[in-house]
């Protein structure tokens, strides 16, 4: 095959890379289901920002 812009080794590297990224994305999605991130309590961490209000009083 003649060398074109679409036959550089870096292009094949990119295809490989996108394929691996896709596999990783699927894996991480399944993993996040397993780890409970899609359950009711999965988003609890974000309320930590406000925890400070409960145990600190700055204004007398």
């Amino acid at each position: 095959m003649p060398a074109t812009d679409y036959t550089y080794p870096s292009v094949y590297f990119a295809y490989l890379f996108f394929f691996l990224s896709f596999l990783l994305a699927v894996y991480f999605f399944i993993r996040s289901r397993k780890d409970g991130y899609w359950e009711d309590k999965g988003e609890d961490v974000k309320f930590q920002v406000f925890q400070d209000d409960d145990n600190t009083r700055r204004t007398p």
Binding site: G42, E43, K46, V49, F50
Partner: peptide
């Protein structure tokens, strides 16, 4: 990520997305 929720007293949209 800290001051937007604090300054608006609104929790972050999504922990997963972060």
């Amino acid at each position: 990520y800290y001051f937007i929720p604090r300054a608006s007293s609104t929790p972050l949209h999504s922990h997963k997305l972060s």
